[in-house]
Write a protein that binds this DNA or RNA. Sequence first.
DNA 1: TCAAATTAGTTTCTATCGCAACGATGGTCA
DNA 2: TGACCATCGTTGCGATAGAAACTAATTTGA
Lengths: 164, 164
Amino acid sequence: MPAQLGSAEAALKLEDFLPYRLNVCANIVSNALSRIYAERYKIGVPEWRVLVTLGQFGMMTAKAIGIHSHMHKTKVSRAVAMLERRKLVARRANRDDLREAFLSLTPAGSDIYRDLAPSALEFARKLMETVEPADRAAFGRALNKLTERSAQIAADIAKGSNPG
Amino acid sequence: MPAQLGSAEAALKLEDFLPYRLNVCANIVSNALSRIYAERYKIGVPEWRVLVTLGQFGMMTAKAIGIHSHMHKTKVSRAVAMLERRKLVARRANRDDLREAFLSLTPAGSDIYRDLAPSALEFARKLMETVEPADRAAFGRALNKLTERSAQIAADIAKGSNPG
DNA sequence: TCAAATTAGTTTCTATCGCAACGATGGTCA
DNA sequence: TGACCATCGTTGCGATAGAAACTAATTTGA
């Protein structure tokens, strides 16, 4: 009943299909992680990323946050607006360029960051623990290559050119 | 100015943080893939998954599609509704249980599937090509372990129990 | 046997997403 | 200087997501 469509070539099985597997894995991991902070701090993924980015760099513009955390500028804008309302992030005008503003964690924001960062690292550590030590480096390399290559493919297609 | 929050332990760097890296990679890959079919067939990811699942199994219920493709039942419902409107998927009542229905590809749906599956496989092949051959198996194993483990962690947290 | 619980699938409702348009500012160059 | 273009960040809006409520059908078990 099924395989009449699969024909000669290697059949397309969703559960073995790389983009699908990546998506499922990323979603489940993301979901598991957010259970650690979402309820406790009442923030979502974008807010979490802004907090972590500012915790890492101390002070930066919304644009820089977007670049570093791979988020659309509207996502950054809304996440920052929420964190500002909650007094976790402060905004300081840049006198040299009034279009942008410098953002940084308030003391309350830093408190949350210091509370949240160790649990996040612990989570990642616990996850990686299940991967064979010998496989870990290979996994990291592969993830980087796949990210890089697919970005390039997407760019090629966007340009309308033949993917080389 | 930044690292005063990082303190003694290994600092949390977003770009090295596994859940973040997985998410970015999955998004870019998914995005690149959808450029191959989205414009040509006017379908999105959920419709693509339904097509592929039915192409693989021939005939199944909406619930089974949801389980196999890891999609919420409302997502399946809407994707199927769209494919039905476009005459790519047909519905046949199950006389033994009228709550559910058997879904399958129409000839037109099969045409699209046969056109789409090889490009998808080619895309995945081209992607995997960039990963060192020696790293590929390790990558697959790691992806499985991470998916499995994070599902378990999420379940543990949901139960309110201490993650063992 | 029939009331209560369960299940498949749809619909409603609300939240979030990202594109596009926008206002405000800054840069370029004739 | 001033007309034009680029950039930062916000907002309006249509599309999409998933939670919860719902309908209809089936199963359970007293």
